[in-house]
Every structure is written in C-alpha cells, then in structure tokens.
Amino acid sequence: MARAATLPRLTWQSATLTQVRRESSTASTLRLDVAGWPGHRAGQHVDVRLTAADGYTAVRPYSLASAAGSGLVEITVATTPGGEVSTYLVNDAVAGNHVEVRGPLGSWFVWDVSDPDPVQLVAGGSGVVPLMSMLRTHGSAGHPAPMRLLYSVSDPEQVLYADEVEQLAHAATVLHTRHSPPGTARPPGRVTPAEVEEHTLPATSRPSVFVCGPTGFVEAMLTVLTGLGHDPERIRAERYGERSSP
C-alpha cells in the first residue's frame, strides 16, 4: 500500500498573553506564549478564538508581526468599529489572559530568506503588519538583496512601528492620505501612480512584490504596479475587509 503524504494537522492551541504593547491610539501588539509553537514564515497569520464565560465564541484572523525564526509569536491588532474581538484584544486584554490560536496559516503570502530577489512591499493602513514580519526577518538575517516599503497611512498617529520604520531610512516611504505631519511638502491624499513609480523598486529589477491592505487599496495598487510593468506572477496580495458583519 502506498504511503499517503502526511499533512500537518491544524488544531486550536491554548495561548497566554505575555505582553501587550500600544502601537497607536487604535492598535496594540500582543505577544503570545504558545506551547509547542512550530515557528512561522514571514507573512503568515493565525486565527484567534475568544470564548466568553457563557460559551459564546468569536474567531478572527490576525497577521503575525514578529520575525520568522525569532521564536516570538506577536500579532498586531487594530480596532475596527464595533469589532468585538479587536476591541477586547486592543483595549481590554492584559498579560496573563488566555486565548486560543490556530496556525500558523497561509503558505502563499509568505517571504523566505531563501528568496534571493529584491523585494518591494506596499502597505495600506494596518496591512503593514505581515510586511513588518518580512522586514524584521530580512533585517535579522542580514539579507543582501534590497527590501523596500511603501506605506500609505491616514495620519502620522496611525503609523505602526514608527521607530522601526524611521530606522529603515531611505528603504521606507510613508505617505499620508488624510493628515500630513507638519512641515511636509506633500498634501495628504491617495497614493498616485507617479508616487508608486518614484518610491518603489523598478520593474526592471524584477522584485518580488507583496501588497497588503484594504480591498480597495490593494485593487488600486495592483492596477498601478502591473501598469508599471511588474509581472503579475511576481505580485502577491493580501486583502483585508472593512468587515461588515456587526
């Protein structure tokens, strides 16, 4: 009898919050202690399940922000209006609380240090979270190929990982859509095709491209990037919705 390929089975694991850090007025990073965590790849996410005392449960996916190979399990959560899970995780949860996680999940929107090519990252809002995992993985590995970030965000207060983004210096460009920091020449507004061209690696350098953000932002960026000559086969996208379920 032929031996069937053995697929790793995914189940819910109990996890303890060991640290909660504020990232902005509306987002926090939560560090989780998960027994037997198998490690993750940059770009992956976990499902988080919360259970109330009466048995009510709610499940939401959150991207991992920590570097692959770091041994750390950190997610960054931004509150969504009326979001019962995000509101609890950002505003109420404290170290010592328990949640359940399932993952790591996703084997498509991932970047590994074994990829020798340049990398262009394009983030809209909290879409920067899985891309930060890639930047941290890239940085801690001392990867020789360039990795650049274009980060569209509503206003300076909403910038996640502001210190780390600043340390990236010329490898990161932050563009504001609603309010610009004082003293900047660029008026706030949506990222234009010309700005994408100016602040990203040229298509001729054949970078791997990762785009993450709200669906409308991702759709717009895919159109711009393919228009600039990027091979659609080399672009990977992750959309997150303004969840409409109450």
């Binding site: 999940l105 996703g106 084997s107 929107f109």
Partner: peptide, 18 residues
C-alpha cells in the same frame, strides 16, 4: 472580496491542513 488566504483557517477545518 478578500483572498482565499482569509479563509485559511476555515479551509484547514475542512481539509485538516493549510
């Protein structure tokens, strides 16, 4: 729409793996 990636957990529930 989101991507199939957003359904990774639910798909894992059906197929047992990612």
């Amino acid at each position: 729409h989101l991507d199939g990636n957003a359904a990774a957990g639910a798909l894992a529930e059906l197929f047992g793996t990612d």
